[in-house]
């Protein structure tokens, strides 16, 4: 079923989803969740795997009393099991004006690519019965979809992405602060953005998320043009997000551009690395499934290694 340009479900690319459906997204750290799932939880609950007994104290849920033990010992014990919590994932999607750029003739611009990636991630999360929410932003939060774990929730997510038309510039500190406020519980926060904003507020925002013990993944989406700057001939670059215009011979500026870009990418990568944030640079020409597979595989292997 081919999705039309206006169909919000176009972001759920069946082929991509088919390729990544065998994977599960896992938090590298134990996250707190209220849906039993595949993720270890620091909380004990009812579950299959028994861990220990403890004496009842007033306030405990009497549903967890081990009546067999009471009958034998006449004391109230509480059965404790290792509980598998559900993953609370929040996808933070940048829909600022800069995301609108796409190479001429390319299948997707950054925004569309980012939306597709977000949709796919959402699908994965939902599929493993974790909750996923979505926050789109530009200068401010535009759409906030609370976390749910039902498949029907996906529709809400993709619709929210669809109505989030790219506009205005990004204010990362403000946005990330709002995201932190909007997700009080620890969880996985996936930032999908081109990160074309000031680095300092960005890192502060990310630090804020980490401070709240969120697991943060940054998908840095950039267009091939932005990475390669393949332009020739006199060109007027009209700045998005209120940046000034520039008429130049791009070939002459290419080297300097690439140097500046490299500095920027290095800075971003280091900043993320410093805060323990998973960072992935994605080109809009990359196969999305490959990118996601690689990222998830890396995360899984990291977790396995720790365990």
């Amino acid at each position: 079923m081919a999705a039309t340009a206006d169909d919000p479900r176009r972001f759920l690319d069946p082929r991509t989803i088919a390729r990544i459906s065998g994977l599960e997204i896992r938090a590298r750290q134990v996250v707190e969740g209220f849906i039993s799932g595949m993720h270890r939880s620091p909380f004990f609950g009812h579950s299959v795997e028994f861990v220990q007994h403890r004496e009842y104290v007033p306030g405990d849920d009497i549903r967890h009393l081990d009546w067999k033990a009471w009958s034998k010992t006449d004391r109230f014990y509480i059965k404790q099991f290792e509980e598998e919590t559900n993953l609370r994932t929040t996808i933070v999607l940048d829909v600022s004006e800069s995301m609108q750029y796409g190479r001429k003739g390319a299948a997707m611009n950054k925004y569309e690519y980012a939306c597709t990636a977000a949709a796919c991630l959402a699908y994965l999360v939902v599929r493993q019965q974790d909750t996923v929410g979505l926050i789109t932003f530009d200068a401010d939060l535009r759409q906030v979809v609370p976390g749910r774990s039902s498949m029907t929730h996906l529709d809400a997510i993709v619709k929210a992405m669809d109505i989030s038309r790219p506009r205005e510039k990004t204010d990362p500190l403000k946005i990330l602060r709002r995201v932190a406020e909007a997700t009080p519980n620890r969880g996985l926060i996936i930032l999908v953005s081109d990160l074309l904003c000031d680095r300092e507020p960005l890192f502060k925002g990310l630090e804020m998320l980490r401070h709240r013990r969120h697991d943060v993944i940054v998908f840095h989406v950039l267009d091939d043009d932005e990475l390669e700057f393949p332009f020739a001939g006199t060109t007027k670059f009209e700045g998005m997000e209120q940046l000034p215009d520039l008429i130049c011979d791009p070939r002459a500026l290419r080297q300097g551009y690439l140097e500046a870009l490299e500095e920027y990418l290095t800075e971003v990568r280091r900043g993320c690395s410093k805060q323990g944030i998973d960072y992935a640079l994605i080109r809009t020409s990359d196969y999305l499934d490959a990118v996601l597979s690689k990222m998830l595989h890396r995360r899984m292997s990291t977790r396995t290694g720790k365990m």
């Binding site: 800069s98 750029y101 950054k110 009209e238 998005m240 290419r254 080297q255 300097g256 551009y257 500046a260």
Partner: peptide, 28 residues
């Protein structure tokens, strides 16, 4: 003529472009 006839591109990564232009302006 090339200066007069240019194409327009709405460009997101102006930051680097402006930085590059500033940096290599004289050499350029």
């Amino acid at each position: 003529i090339n200066r007069l006839r240019y194409r327009r591109i709405r460009w997101a990564a102006m930051e680097f472009l402006l930085k590059a232009q500033k940096r290599i302006r004289r050499r350029l």
